[in-house]
């Protein structure tokens, strides 16, 4: 998206944007405002996390259902070995990213960088916004208000299906990891309580496996909704996650 402009909007300003082809004249009456929302570390983290989740889901699925048997000598293959190694490498990226994201949100980031970690369910406004968004998705309301950070529905889904589920994957994942490193390793000491708590080793595998499906369903819906919002809503979405600026396409009151 083009950089902030001071002069009146011209047709060429819209080239290459999501409004490409529309007449600038119609927009000129409005003030196109934008706010820097997603700071660089957040954006970098977002795409790293997305990539690591793709690797984690593919390798995790293959750990549960390995490809068909390879012929030849065992010494000439290391297929499951690589699948697991990739899972663990991606797991480390995901985990360190997650921890870094928490630290960024707590100490360095702007107000919107903290939205991922809680939901203001005690505020009436939150429930109203959530309902409004749901009505928009049910095609009952035409449009929702603009938001600088995440809208109420997005925030709810992110918190439960990404933040909490992701945290669960890290905790259960490192508990499973301690099977290999031993109960006296730091993983065993830090996460050894997890497996008895979840009902044993096998149950931990089972729930870790389910966590993957929750995240896959979340990602499907996430990609659909950001694309849809990007096209239909009153503000930018996908470009916000690449260049950081939230651009509002109108300044009508909500």
């Amino acid at each position: 998206m083009s950089t902030p402009q001071s002069g009146p909007l011209s047709d060429s300003d819209l080239k290459g944007t999501n409004l490409d082809g529309q007449a600038a004249q119609a927009l000129r009456a409005r003030r196109v405002t934008q706010i820097y929302v997603y700071e660089a570390p957040v954006r970098l983290w977002h795409w790293l996390t997305a990539a690591s989740i793709v690797v984690l889901a593919i390798t995790g699925y293959l750990i549960g259902s390995p490809p068909s048997t390879l012929s030849g000598e065992a010494s000439s293959h290391f297929q499951m070995g690589w699948i697991r190694a990739l899972h663990f490498m991606a797991a480390w990226i995901f985990t360190i990213g997650f921890a870094g994201r928490v630290i960024w949100g707590l100490f360095f980031g702007n107000a919107w960088s903290r939205e991922l970690f809680w939901v203001p369910f005690w505020k009436a406004e939150y429930w109203k916004d959530l309902l409004d968004e749901l009505l928009v998705y049910a095609f009952i309301r035409k449009e929702a208000k603009t938001t600088i950070g995440h809208n109420a529905l997005a925030r709810t889904a992110l918190f439960f299906c990404f933040t909490l589920t992701g945290l669960f994957m890290i905790v259960s994942g490192f508990a499973l990891y301690s099977d290999g490193t031993g109960i006296d390793s730091w993983e065993g000491r830090a996460f050894g309580w997890v497996m008895p708590w979840l009902g044993g080793n096998l149950s931990t595998h089972y729930l870790h496996h389910w966590g993957m499906w929750i995240i896959i369903l979340f990602v499907m819906i996430h990609i659909y909704t950001v694309t849809r919002e990007d096209i239909t809503s009153r503000q930018s979405l996908i470009s916000s996650m690449t260049n950081g600026y939230r651009i509002f396409r109108d300044d009508r009151p909500d």
Partner: peptide, 8 residues
């Protein structure tokens, strides 16, 4: 070793 190799 067969597990790591992918032979089941």
């Amino acid at each position: 070793p067969h597990f790591d190799a992918g032979q089941y």
